[in-house]
């Protein structure tokens, strides 16, 4: 009798794969908008034409541009003027410390955010100066010199004090670029910092109240409380998060979330942070998976040999 098993196997596998393709890759491509990554090139922003002078930039940042009126630069010995909760009450969100801004954020983005925050952050739909809605960050209009040169100087200064780009850690990138709006409870991260282990419940509750107060201001500022991102790596996936960070408007037109202007490297670090939070065991999964597959193949070979031995007398 002809052996029909290979044909049957082909039929079963073909129908299974067809069904899989229809309900997974195909259906999801129809359901979800596909946004292509631009590799964090920020092509809509003007490239820096001037070479910046860090020393001149320092004078501007600390002086005429008044950056330190709102931003701390702890590396340069400039502490924040107020705590996170009061800062959020004043500005809606706690302004970031600028110590490592030069390494985390794209230079073109930094230059643009200094002179036109709402444009660089892509929140002009929310903050329109002509309608009297000013972005809480005041634009820098120049300190008497050539504007482009002054901006280049300030960017150069921020880059000069920051860690080397390859020294940016996942935690550093996440906390600076995302962590002032998004908590990650699985990493104990709140919008005002990592929640310490308190000895007394009273202190723990006092901390929670501060977080709630911060969140109240943030909610008012953003329209709704930005979500906790603990499981986002599993619920949204790397591609979605990465392209969302790059340009939130491309996914969700009109969203209050600003474009944060991170470099491609810093975006990878943010993803890594989220993987550590929501897909903590991925390395273990890969290594255990390899061993289990090797075991399964060996098992299948022995099972095949046993079958052949048993069936030797049956044909």
């Amino acid at each position: 009798m002809k052996n029909k098993e290979p044909l049957i196997l082909v039929v079963v596998v073909a129908f299974t794969l067809l069904t899989y393709w229809l309900v997974e890759p195909y259906a999801h491509s129809v359901m979800h908008k596909h946004v292509e990554s631009q590799n964090f090139a920020y092509a809509d922003l003007k490239p820096l034409t001037k070479t910046g002078n860090a020393a001149a930039g320092k004078d501007l940042v600390m002086g005429a541009a008044a950056c330190t009126g709102c931003h701390s630069i702890e590396k340069a010995g400039m502490p924040s003027a107020m705590d996170a909760v009061s800062a959020a009450a004043s500005y809606g969100v706690n302004p970031p410390d600028l110590s490592n801004a030069g390494a985390i954020y794209d230079a073109k983005f930094l230059a643009d955010v200094i002179v036109n925050p709402a444009h660089a952050l892509k929140v002009e739909h929310k903050f329109d100066a002509s309608k009297g809605k000013m972005h809480p960050m005041a634009p820098f209009a120049g300190a008497g010199g050539e504007l482009e040169q002054e901006v280049a100087d300030m960017v150069a200064y921020l880059q000069s004090i920051a860690v080397k780009p390859d020294q940016v850690t996942p935690k550093m990138a996440y906390e600076n670029a995302c962590g002032r709006c998004h908590s990650v409870s699985y990493e104990k991260w709140t919008q005002i910092g990592e929640k310490p282990a308190f000895k007394f419940e009273k202190d723990s509750l006092a901390f929670d109240i501060k977080v709630l107060e911060y969140q109240e201001s943030l909610t008012k500022y953003m329209g709704k409380l930005p979500p906790d991102l603990s499981m986002y790596i599993r619920s949204r996936g790397e591609h979605f998060i990465s392209t969302f960070i790059e340009n939130p408007q491309a996914h969700l037109e009109g969203t209050a979330m600003p474009r944060v202007g991170v470099t491609a490297d810093a975006a990878h670090k943010v993803i890594e942070y989220l993987e550590d939070a929501g897909d903590t065991k991925r390395h273990e999964r890969a290594s255990v998976g390899k061993m289990v597959l090797i075991f399964s193949v060996v098992f299948a070979i022995f099972a095949l040999l046993w079958k052949k031995q048993v069936w030797k007398n049956l044909h």
Partner: peptide, 20 residues
């Protein structure tokens, strides 16, 4: 013995899905 052989090949497929 034949069942177990099929189970053996099935488990390769199954664990591939579980991990990857």
């Amino acid at each position: 013995s034949k069942d177990l052989m099929v189970v053996g090949f099935f488990l390769i497929f199954f664990f591939y899905l579980v991990f990857f």
